[in-house]
Simulated assay, not measured.
Amino acid sequence: MNDKEIIQKNIVESIFFAFDKSGIRMGDACVYTSYLTKDLLKEKYNMDAELRAGSVKFIYPPVQYKWNPPYETHMWVLLNGEIIDIDAARLTERDEFQIGGKYHAHRNVQLDIVWEDIPYDGRVYTEVENGVDKIEPPIDAPDYKDLYQYACNYIDRN
């Protein structure tokens, strides 16, 4: 594995571990996941990533999260031109994918993380100018601090 692959593996696995350990549904927490990604990249690898917010549209399943805060939005990270969206891998945890939800028919679709310039699966990210400023940062929330600590400990052990 090259350095980039090691960093990707450590960041992704640490975030999955942190959410699993905390019991928080990652699929409902794109803001937390994005802040974790940005903060871990800086803390553990001295890499400056940027937060982005707006909407995302998936080709399959035909799902879209529009810009309509605080009810609906999406957040991701941008690092050296690459979109990083770890939260999307657990999107089907959300209530709308469960029995009776509007996306129930797509509950078993496997969505992958994105860590690339152009998403391979055709999903489209549309940034809203100053969108991040319109979303409350979670960094002072106790559950965010727990997630961050779990993720840091995971990286430190590996």
Rank of each mutant, 00 (worst) to 15 (best):
N2R: 11
K4S: 13
Q8T: 07
K9G: 11
V12Y: 14
E13N: 15
A18N: 06
A18G: 06
A18Q: 06
S22G: 06
G23R: 02
I24Q: 04
I24Y: 05
R25N: 14
D28R: 14
D28Q: 13
T33Q: 02
T33L: 01
T33Y: 01
Y35A: 03
L40A: 07
E43M: 08
K44H: 11
Y45F: 15
D48N: 14
A49E: 00
R52Q: 09
G54D: 01
G54P: 00
Y60E: 13
P61N: 00
P62R: 12
V63H: 00
Q64I: 14
K66A: 12
K66S: 11
N68Q: 08
P70N: 03
Y71Q: 08
E72M: 13
T73E: 07
V77G: 01
L78M: 13
G81C: 02
I83E: 00
I83Q: 03
D85M: 02
I86Q: 04
R90S: 08
E93R: 10
R94C: 08
R94V: 08
F97E: 01
K102F: 04
K102G: 01
Y103H: 12
H106F: 15
V109A: 11
I118D: 08
Y120F: 15
T126Y: 13
V128Y: 03
V128R: 02
E129R: 09
G131H: 07
D133T: 02
P137C: 05
P138T: 00
I139R: 04
I139L: 00
I139D: 01
A141I: 07
A141E: 15
D143N: 10
Y144H: 02
Y144D: 01
D146M: 11
Q149L: 12
C152R: 13
N158D: 11
